[in-house]
Design a protein around this nucleic acid. Structure first.
Length: 428
DNA sequence: TCTGGGGTCCTAGGACCC
DNA sequence: TCTGGGGTCCTAGGACCC
């Protein structure tokens, strides 16, 4: 009912209370890179990319300068992209680095060709999480109706916030932006519009450190000229299909009849696209949501073979299961659908899963069940990635506990404890 | 030398039940 | 014995997003 056919078709700017609905989308600018620049101010203005694992050299760097502040580390002590070998990709690049054509999702070795002098920093999630919590707390203080959209993005409902209507939301957007900058030193871009769909597009108009305001009358002038790909939800595949049908811009999409879209994209997607092209979106700002699944996966440094690298794979497999179990326990959830994911050397992926009749967050149970899944998958090709997932989650501490859910004491007793150990040892 | 890791949502077929 | 819907759950794959 959130989107699609059944949603009542209000004009896009109408709020049930009669007030103009004003929704903001806030996006932190080059978030990881900007956080790193706060820690290493000497890198300001230089091309910096974040990516790859925590490399040994980086540890050396930190140890060499232990006792100094990070800001004291001289520029020539930092690692450069030049000569990088390995499989990592860039997660974020500073704006200075983007000048060289390097950016998110680009392989680090390719990036090294484009911008060898760029400074390479490893990803430091704990640090980003800290700043993420900080900027969200600042926003929630000003405008409590906030939806978390990941580490560096939120939607905010400005509609009922004092001042939220002034200049279409620009005044409040400036206030939020300033509060975040004053308290963290980080910049962000904000779009304010009648709904989430348009706010999301608007926040991209003026990056970095920009604000842009969209009113209903702006649809034709500011939205319709944009490429369809700018709609959040139209990815590479849908865009390719649209282009094949001669549709490049949102305006061209809007010019099509609904039945035509339904014919080519199905009832649901067709109707959603039609609404999107007309700037219609009734989705509410959602404050809380429950996780659906928890997973861990890893790409190996080199492709591994199920037989030849059996020991190494077994170790990694067990570690992934322990990590997922720990994640579940830390977050306070138990799940009953255990799954694995493999990626072969040709980049093709397969998944297998199995649903238990009990909920669990126990590493051994997960490892056992994931092991059974693994047996259902062809293992003659080299692997580049292995993942473990637990889904169908419910909050822990209900009627079931981890202890009750061990396979040896539960309905999953098709295998005894010794069977289990044997099976696990046979997996690789 | 290609292509990370953590998620959500959707579809479609088959099993199984009423 | 044949035919048939509807509903739910499970599984596999894929698109998409941050």
């Amino acid at each position: 009912m959130v989107r699609g056919f059944l949603a009542p078709q209000y004009p896009m700017n109408e709020h049930p209370g009669g007030v103009r609905r004003r929704i903001a989308h806030l996006d932190m600018d080059a978030f990881y890179a900007s956080v790193e620049l706060l820690r290493y101010p000497q890198l300001k203005g230089l091309p910096v990319v974040i990516g790859g694992g925590r490399r040994a050299e980086d540890e050396t760097l930190r140890q060499t300068y232990a006792g100094h502040t990070l800001a004291d580390i001289p520029l020539d002590a930092f690692h450069r992209l030049k000569g990088y070998t390995g499989r990592g990709v860039i997660t974020t690049a500073t704006y200075a680095a983007r000048q060289f054509g390097v950016g998110s999702a680009l392989g680090l070795m390719k990036a090294a060709k484009l911008c060898p002098q760029a400074i390479l920093l490893p990803v430091d999630f704990n640090q980003y999480r800290k700043y993420s919590h900080a900027f969200k707390a600042i926003i929630a203080d000003i405008a409590p109706l906030m939806e978390d959209r990941g580490v560096d993005e939120v939607y905010i409902d400005f509609t009922e916030v004092p001042g939220g209507q002034r200049e279409g939301g620009r005044v409040l957007a400036r206030l939020v932006q300033k509060a975040i900058f004053d308290q963290t030193g980080l910049t962000c871009s904000v779009g304010v519009a009648p709904n989430k769909l348009l706010a999301k597009m608007a926040s991209e108009f003026n990056k970095p450190n920009g604000i842009s305001i969209i009113f209903e009358g702006d649809l034709q002038g500011k939205i319709w000229p944009l490429a369809c790909r700018k709609i959040n939800g139209i990815g590479p595949k849908a865009d390719e299909k649209l282009q094949g049908l001669g549709i490049e811009t949102i305006g061209q999409l809007a010019a099509r009849e609904l039945p035509w879209l339904v014919q080519h994209f199905g009832k649901k997607t067709g109707a959603w696209m039609w609404d999107a092209a007309h700037g219609r979106d009734q989705r509410p700002v959602v404050l809380e949501s429950e996780p659906v699944c928890v997973s861990r996966e890893t790409t190996f440094e080199r492709d591994l073979h199920a037989v030849r690298d059996k020991v190494e794979l077994g170790t990694i497999f067990t570690r992934l299961c322990s990590q997922v179990a720990a994640d579940l326990q830390r977050k306070g959830y138990v799940g009953k659908t255990i799954g694995i994911k493999l990626r072969y050397d040709d980049f093709k992926s397969v998944t297998r899963d199995q649903t238990l009749d009990i909920y669990t967050a126990d590493a051994q149970t997960i490892r056992h069940t994931a092991g059974l899944c693994l047996k259902r998958v062809p293992l003659d090709q080299r692997l580049r990635l292995l993942g473990v997932r637990v889904g169908t989650l419910v909050k822990a501490g209900g009627t079931e506990t981890c202890e009750e859910n061990r396979p040896s004491t539960s309905k999953l007793s098709a295998s005894s404890a010794t069977d289990l150990a044997t099976k696990i040892s046979q997996l690789f």
